[in-house]
């Protein structure tokens, strides 16, 4: 086993300090009894209590979770189909356009995605709200979901599917009994990625939402613009904790899958 030199250890420590210190500071100050960020007034969970009484914020959070759930499910279903189309049905007409459209949202500035979808909804004269944001989020996380599933499908032993066909399974039965169970961890990971992308998005939601559908990032954004407050720190801490749990669950899932396929 090779040893890391002092320079490389420094690089690791400095790099991770840069990544984590701001977040740790944010978490620490959510437990500050004092309202002033400069003063440490002792440990307190006061701000979490205050948060629980902040009904608009709780409403926004609940809305964001429902929205993320639906849009992640749609994005994962479509992303999985898109991945199958790209990996399995290699050369169909318009493949270049299709691949471009799947991947473009990954690189597209969010302001453009948001603006263009809003203009679509306006010209179609659709009432904006929960469902328009859901469609927008599903569209832009579709590409991310597709990439996750695609990498899994690319390493898939096609003879497994052929064996199923050979043993009498129709293409659809083959998909349900062989393909899907085997790509399942990637599908789950894609769903979680789409879920957090939706939960995190401010810009696209701001463009495509309507009255009565204010998401959590939108609420946080307007609060943050007004300045720092321990209550926001508390809200952020809860979100960080939730995301950390999801990520750990996801990586455990993927690890178990790697062990199983090894």
């Amino acid at each position: 086993m090779k040893r890391l030199g002092p320079g490389l250890i420094m690089a690791l420590v400095a790099g991770f300090a840069f990544l984590y210190l701001p977040i740790l500071a944010l978490i620490a100050y959510s437990f500050n009894a004092s309202r002033l960020v400069t003063v440490w007034g002792g440990f307190s969970t006061h701000w979490y209590g205050a948060l629980m009484a902040n009904q608009p914020l709780l409403d926004a959070a609940w809305l964001s979770i429902r929205l993320a759930f639906v849009s992640a499910s749609v994005a994962t279903a479509l992303g999985t189909l898109a991945a199958l189309a790209l990996v399995r049905y290699g050369a169909f007409r318009g493949r270049t356009l299709f691949a471009g459209m799947v991947l473009a949202p990954l690189l597209m500035p969010e302001v453009i995605t948001g603006l263009s979808l809003l203009l679509l909804f306006v010209s179609a004269q659709v009432e904006r709200g929960f469902w328009t944001v859901t469609i927008a989020h599903a569209t832009f996380s579709l590409g991310f979901a597709c990439i996750v599933v695609q990498s899994r499908l690319a390493g898939f032993d096609r003879s497994l599917e052929e064996a199923a066909r050979d043993l009498g399974a129709t293409p659809i039965v083959t998909f349900w009994t062989v393909t899907l169970p085997l790509i399942w961890p990637a599908v789950a990971a894609a769903w979680m990625l789409a879920f957090t992308l939706s939960l995190d998005d401010l810009v696209i939601a701001s463009f495509t939402t309507g009255p009565g559908a204010t998401t959590l990032p939108m609420r946080l954004y307007s609060a943050v613009r007004l300045g720092v407050s321990p209550e926001i720190n508390a809200a952020c801490t809860i979100m960080i904790g939730a995301v950390a749990l999801v990520v750990i669950a996801a990586s455990l899932l993927l690890k178990r899958d790697q062990l199983a396929s090894a």
């Binding site: 032993d157 003879s159 497994l160 052929e162 062989v178 169970p181 396929s261």
Partner: peptide, 11 residues
């Protein structure tokens, strides 16, 4: 058919 890789369903 018996596949060269055996193609046993790992799940």
């Amino acid at each position: 058919m018996m596949f060269q890789s055996y193609a046993l369903f790992p799940h």
